[in-house]
């Protein structure tokens, strides 16, 4: 090649650093996945291949309950946060520039900036007062809390999609006799679809994975899968935890792959 460019790959030690980074990132996960198939009850000593920890987890009523609870909360949180985020994204991109725009962005993305533990304590105190006042003890608190911190995750891909959309498409629809509602229904929404789906999936994964806020907000017997696993640490750890983690990992990888496929630019 005639042109000599600066290439990071040619620097001494590049390969070493790259390999070390990948090992640090993926070796723990590989170990976790490997020991989920351990025949013995140790999470550190290999005693042969078996699927029985998956079967154990599957038949464990506490795991089943926590899984269902996690999924219910994640589905609700994804739906609520995506709806709110879609409205917020429309509100911040489909209007003329206004004073305080930056403030609105900061407000919407607040959960990304405030330390999660602070939000967790604040919600515990507030919901505690509501619980006393109303007597309601259900999953609503967790759903509400999850919905709130999922909003920025849903908001970002939706807003990115809206900003990439040609405004003249909506003008064209209005010009062709579409009412504002029809314009939204037949032009904006279909074009926004992939962004909304991507936002919903991201929100779902974020909700599924949450420990800190859930731990503080949940009432007795409201363990989600992550808080159930945290609880297991107080007892003897068995590869059952590995099996649950591996299943969770598989689900997340599938969803994030779908998210990537939906948000990448069409080539």
């Amino acid at each position: 090649m005639a042109e000599r460019r600066f290439e990071v790959a040619r620097l001494p030690g590049f390969a070493t650093v790259a390999v070390a980074t990948f090992v640090m990132l993926y070796l723990p996960i590989a170990t976790l996945v490997t020991f989920s198939f351990n025949a013995g009850s140790s999470i550190a000593v290999w005693e042969g291949f078996s699927l029985h920890w998956y079967a154990d987890a599957w038949n464990n009523q506490a795991v089943k309950d926590a899984t269902v609870r996690s999924l219910v909360i994640a589905v609700w949180a994804a739906m609520i946060s995506t709806t709110v985020a879609t409205l917020a994204a429309l509100g911040t991109t489909r209007r003329a520039a206004f004073k305080g725009e930056t403030f609105i962005y900061v407000a919407i993305n607040q959960p990304l900036m405030v330390p999660e533990i602070v939000t967790a304590v604040a919600l515990m105190i507030l919901f505690g007062m509501v619980k006393v006042a109303t007597g309601y003890q259900g999953l609503g608190y967790l759903i509400l809390a999850h919905s709130a911190f999922c909003i920025p995750f849903a908001y970002l891909p939706i807003r990115a999609r809206l900003e990439g959309m040609d405004l003249s498409l909506e003008s064209a629809a209005a010009d062709l006799y579409a009412s504002p509602w029809q314009t939204f229904r037949f032009v904006t929404l279909p074009l926004l679809g992939p962004g909304i789906l991507a936002g919903a999936m991201l929100a779902f994964v974020i909700s599924l994975d949450d420990v800190i806020i859930t731990e503080f907000v949940k009432s007795g017997g409201q363990d989600t899968l992550p808080t159930y696993m945290l609880g297991q640490m107080r007892r003897t750890m068995t590869p059952e935890v590995n099996a649950i983690s591996t299943a969770l990992l598989a689900l997340t990888v599938v969803l994030l792959t779908a998210f990537f496929l939906l948000t990448r630019k069409k080539g």
Binding site: D166, S168, L169, S171, A172, A173, A174, D175, L176, Y177, A178, S179, P180, T183, V187
Partner: peptide, 17 residues
């Protein structure tokens, strides 16, 4: 509003859906 006018536009960018 534009949707109530019997007037149609060909946009510079075409603005096809």
């Amino acid at each position: 509003p534009p949707n109530k006018r019997p007037v149609n536009t060909v946009f510079q960018s075409y603005a096809l859906f």
